[in-house]
Design a protein around this nucleic acid. Structure first.
Lengths: 339, 339
DNA sequence: GCGCGAAATGAAATCGGTTTCAATCGTCTT
DNA sequence: AAGACGATTGAAACCGATTTCATTTCGCGC
């Protein structure tokens, strides 16, 4: 007996012949068209099922000019090269995967290594996907603006600028900064440090939320920012060690752009004999699963990746259904989790 | 001016007309066929480039009966439901993504929530992908065997059984267990515990490697196994606490099926006032990025996800190129990383 | 100058569906 | 009983590429 994969594949014409109807009738029966008689439909469906028939999606896509496929862009490359893989990004991917499944969309995972929009444009032109979900705007805002301007259906996870013309889904990063600020105020911290690369808009907004809120408080002596230049654990650890080396007066509170960086900083503090949280209070971001098993458990700001995936997918679906794309900002919820 | 996306898309016929040649000539020029004159080719390419033409991949796939797309199956669903997202699986995905890119294959990410093979079969029949890379065999070995038996081109990350008839890529889990055993022997540990769900073949092999090697040594008093029934952090933590509660004589060495579980166990030990590694030596698995920033840094067995991705992709490509699929076991490298 | 083979090209068929449009049939109106 | 109409159905065109096969063109030997 031939293995399944070697049997000549069934086509719609085969089913039509077997069911004694024409090709269009089979097509209509399978797509629940009201144009086909109910008795005919069930007969056709029975024949199709009996022979394990599945429509050829490529023929369908060609004819429909719609692929029901969403390209999801992840910045794997820069992650790999820098040896960093933030669990948060992957939870986000899982959220998007689930949401797209709910919308019956396939997920084409791409990791374009260029920051120019050509690779992205090609995917649309080649009809490999109907639209894009872009996870992490990184330093590509200009590219994304141009891409959206050209009419591409895209939705981006990130933080919107006043003038972005693409739709952004993201949590309120400014609020995230304020939540951290409040946490420090509640604990009467006086010298606060933000750690992160503020050339990323999301991180900058967190910094601004923190700074603005703390600088209104008379009890706070200083609010500083330590610039990191990449996202690696090692960089964060090294930066922490160097910082401790040169700083005059140590901060008593540190807010970091991610839990991964928080882990690296806490490790550096530990290795320098500093007691967290007694001497330095630390707040991270994202609430990755391992955060609460760290020592000490990390206080962090949780972003809901399930909700994020759902909102990204839902918005993109609406754009594809004809809603005029705009620069909407869709906010997902945030909470500070303290164990 | 119309946005790019609203311009009627260019087809090969348009390019043919613009270049004063026929459709087949354009097709040949674009695919570097030797049948076309060099001068003609460069002229056609110039015209195509000038108009930003991109071939319609769906038409191509339909005609070629080859999609150059690989479906990658991740068990997102069970992860989400159980609130676990092991960074290792995602590093593996990144490795596969990169490798498939190197082979010019698209990556269709699927997270089928059924353990029957129908959803998988459909993807092949619908010609949505040419083959499968399955990350994590889990408890689906029967399904995978049947799927492979039916002739489906699949490659699986996992651990092979003696009688699996699909191709497995994985590290030598038995060796992994031995590495951990050696580590404990070097430190003169006497009461060793393995923690993990041995109904997963990969974990069982690690356990066997550990047990077999330790039971040969007269200095070792006991080698036990603690069964976990899912992969969640919480379960691991709770199991650790319960275990400490009931155990007569504490182990002085614990080997865990993953770094995430190691984190949970170390947290439980810490919360119970046990000093790791002085009182209990711990070895994890996978060397996830945060492992070395944990407190204490986790000794762990590193699996090379980059290499894994490459070997998975390369093997599948060979199968698709006609190599008769077999139940080959392809081994990736392992090292014990101790900081 | 003629015939022949190699190189280059194009017309038409093909991949497997969906859609347009015309045809058929029974029913209903007047 | 003729005409109109709605419900079903199928023939043929179409989506946009590739491949088969026939044709044209050109160089070359004799």
């Amino acid at each position: 007996m031939l293995a399944d994969s070697e049997k000549p594949a069934m086509t719609m014409a085969d089913i039509a012949r077997l069911a004694n109807v024409s090709k269009p009738t089979v097509s209509r029966a399978l797509s629940n068209s009201p144009l086909v008689n109910e008795a005919t439909r069930s007969h056709v469906l029975a024949v199709a099922r009996r022979h394990g028939y599945t429509v050829n999606r490529n023929a369908q896509k060609l004819r429909h000019k719609r692929t029901n496929t969403i390209a999801v862009s992840m910045d794997f490359d820069s992650h790999r090269q820098r040896h960093i893989s933030d669990p948060f990004m992957y939870d986000l991917l899982a959220g998007v995967s689930e949401a797209l499944g709910d919308h019956n969309q396939d997920l084409l995972l791409c990791a374009p290594n260029h920051n120019d929009s050509i690779a992205f444009q090609q995917i649309l032109k080649a009809r490999s996907a109907d639209g894009f979900i872009i996870l992490g705007q990184g330093h590509r805002e200009d590219m994304l603006n141009a891409f959206a301007q050209s009419g591409a259906p895209i939705v981006v996870w990130g933080a919107a600028a006043e003038d972005s013309n693409y739709c952004v889904v993201g949590s309120d990063n400014y609020l995230g900064g304020q939540l951290a600020a409040q946490y420090f105020l509640d604990r009467e911290r006086r010298r606060v440090l933000f750690v992160g690369d503020t050339s990323f808009r999301e991180f900058r907004q967190r910094w601004e939320g923190l700074r603005d809120m703390l600088s209104e408080s008379p009890q706070v002596e200083s609010v500083d920012q330590l610039q990191l230049n990449d996202l690696r654990y090692e960089s964060a650890y090294d930066a922490a060690i160097r910082f401790l080396d040169v700083v005059d007066e140590r901060p008593d509170a540190v807010f970091l752009y991610s839990d991964t960086a928080a882990m690296a900083f806490i490790a550096a503090f530990r290795d320098s004999g500093i007691d967290v949280p007694r001497e330095i209070s630390v707040v991270g971001y994202n609430d990755i699963p391992s955060a609460q098993y760290f020592s000490p458990p990390i206080t962090t700001i949780r972003q809901d990746t399930h909700q994020a995936g759902e909102r990204l997918a839902a918005k993109l679906m609406r754009i594809l259904d004809g809603e005029t794309p705009n620069s909407a900002r869709i906010r997902t919820e945030l909470i500070l989790r303290d164990t």
